[in-house]
Simulated scan of single mutants.
Amino acid sequence: MRRWGTALAAMALAGAGLATTMGAAHAAAKPSAAAACATGWGSGEKSAQPAAHKPLENIRTGRHECFDRMVFDVKGGTAASRIGYRVAYVDTLYQDGSGEEIPVGGGAVLEIRVSAPSYDPETGAQTYPGRARKPLPGVNLTGYKTFKDTRFGSSFEGDTQVGLGVRARLPFRVFQSDGHVVVDVAHSWNAVR
């Protein structure tokens, strides 16, 4: 009887050790809830030269764990037809063409120029309903961590100009995906999820 008791006690201890080891391995395999977000994008100007001028179809925004996103949808854009852009922080947004100041809310202003007019270059028909000095149509920034305001600047000489008010001068990146120009602005310089 004593041998069975000792054997059962040894098995119980081994099982507890195995459960502890398995629990630790499982915890190590789980990603940390406070994983770091990428913020190495910098805050300097970013630009690309256009291959063609296709019409702007829409501007939309989205919220992510680490950044807020603005997407410019270009009608007929493909991976082969590069869309030009220039994105940079400015002290004041001045409307292309008129030179008038456009007030933009927030702690810092990103001026975004995309080589896609808000009209069809072939027909002159409007393709995006932006109005100078007004917020972007259909864009609601309620609940965003970084984005604070949007203003349509103009569509002048084949480019569309937008002012994006952000909380502060934060790192951002710009990239293209088929018929889209994407602008991501981080929530902070040292963001965590």
Results as ranks from 00 to 15, higher is better:
158 G>R: 02
157 E>M: 11
103 P>H: 07
114 V>G: 08
86 R>C: 02
98 S>L: 08
131 R>S: 13
160 T>N: 10
124 G>M: 09
111 E>W: 03
90 V>E: 11
87 V>Q: 08
87 V>M: 09
104 V>K: 01
145 K>E: 08
112 I>R: 04
86 R>W: 00
124 G>I: 11
127 T>F: 03
133 R>W: 00
103 P>V: 07
84 G>M: 04
152 F>E: 00
88 A>Y: 06
102 I>R: 11
92 T>G: 00
147 F>M: 12
96 D>F: 14
115 S>M: 01
99 G>T: 12
117 P>Q: 09
149 D>C: 03
157 E>K: 14
141 L>A: 05
90 V>C: 12
107 G>C: 11
153 G>Q: 08
83 I>W: 00
156 F>S: 00
108 A>Q: 12
135 P>K: 04
135 P>G: 04
155 S>M: 06
87 V>F: 02
118 S>G: 14
79 A>Q: 12
86 R>F: 01
115 S>G: 01
127 T>G: 06
114 V>Q: 08
157 E>P: 00
148 K>H: 01
114 V>C: 07
92 T>W: 03
77 G>D: 13
125 A>V: 13
122 E>P: 00
131 R>V: 15
119 Y>F: 15
92 T>F: 04
113 R>P: 08
98 S>P: 12
160 T>M: 05
158 G>H: 09
91 D>E: 14
140 N>G: 05
135 P>D: 05
135 P>S: 03
